[in-house]
């Protein structure tokens, strides 16, 4: 097995304000293999977004440490780490500056990180847009004129511009229609393989996890509940909470319904969940 790209050791984050303490993440230890698509799954309040923010260096942990390529990640990130770990957010409209053209948004990281020559950057922007399936003339357009799927492609191109090693994908397709989602997921999969990228895929959608992830870690109220390869987790989920989550997924085929019912039968389900 290849050397892990990211290790979390006893990672924790507690927020304190006005005498209130909220433990957002508690004692998380995980190892992520290079080149994988690692899903982080949980409901609201599970700590999955806090985990993403810690990995991105947007906030500092209150306990434990993170190692990136076997080197401890500092709380205050240098340019190297900021470039190596990129983010694609859920809502591409708010992630893209409405007053900048698509080309300027994709070019910004090239300028900031001084990637390539300044004359070569326009060509690189065109190349990046092509890479995510957009015509080069999109560079002149504003994000407002684009569909949700196209905007998300731009956000992916911008992340790729940094030639990152790890991309944190925070619900990258949950705002998209299913036909668009399928295409964006396929794009992400292709880019991962071709560029040897590693993904930290934050999502609440277990069916998407099944389609794209290599490993899954399930979180509940700030704690890691279960973690493992995606096939194993769906074949035999160990934790009751994981079974509940899979059992609550709205499914569309008989085959899925049978699988879900079998998983449901393995655990006491909450009273919710209308009969199919």
């Amino acid at each position: 097995m290849s050397e892990p790209i990211l290790e979390l050791n006893g990672l924790g984050k507690t927020f304190e304000a006005d005498g209130n303490r909220v433990v957002a993440l508690s004692d998380v230890s995980l190892t992520f293999a290079r080149g994988g698509c690692h899903a982080i799954v949980g409901e609201s309040g599970s700590g999955k977004t806090t985990l993403a923010n810690l990995v991105l260096g947007l906030m500092a942990p209150t306990a434990g440490e993170m190692r990136f390529n076997s080197v401890a990640l500092p709380g205050d990130r240098g340019k190297g780490h900021r470039r190596a770990i990129q983010l694609v957010q859920q809502n591409p409209l708010s992630a893209l500056n409405p007053r900048r053209t698509i080309g300027a948004s994709v070019r910004l990281p090239l300028d900031v990180h001084e990637i390539g020559t300044s004359s070569g950057r326009a060509a690189r922007v065109a190349e990046l847009l092509q890479e995510v399936g957009l015509e080069p003339d999109y560079a002149q357009r504003s994000p407002r004129g684009l569909s949700g799927g196209q905007r998300q492609r731009v956000a992916i191109a911008r992340a790729l511009a940094c030639e990152p090693e790890l991309i944190v994908l925070d619900e990258p397709t949950s705002a998209l229609d299913v036909l668009v989602q399928a295409r964006v997921l396929k794009l992400l999969e292709r880019l991962r393989v071709e560029h040897g990228l590693t993904y930290l895929f934050i999502t609440h959608d277990l069916a998407v996890v099944r389609a794209i992830a290599t490993t899954v870690s399930v979180f509940q109220r700030g704690r890691l509940v279960e973690s493992g390869p995606v096939e194993a987790l769906f074949a035999a989920p160990q934790a009751d909470y994981t079974r509940q989550l899979i059992g609550a997924v709205p499914v569309v085929t008989e085959e899925e319904a049978r699988l879900r019912d079998a998983i449901r039968a393995g655990a006491p389900m909450p009273a919710a969940g209308p009969g199919a």
Binding site: L179, Q181, A182, E256
Partner: peptide
């Protein structure tokens, strides 16, 4: 038919190549 096949399934099977 396209909508139904584009939805990821918990039973697996990957993603189909479909036009938007």
């Amino acid at each position: 038919q396209a909508l139904l096949s584009a939805i990821p399934k918990i039973s697996g099977g990957g993603l189909p190549d479909l036009p938007e």
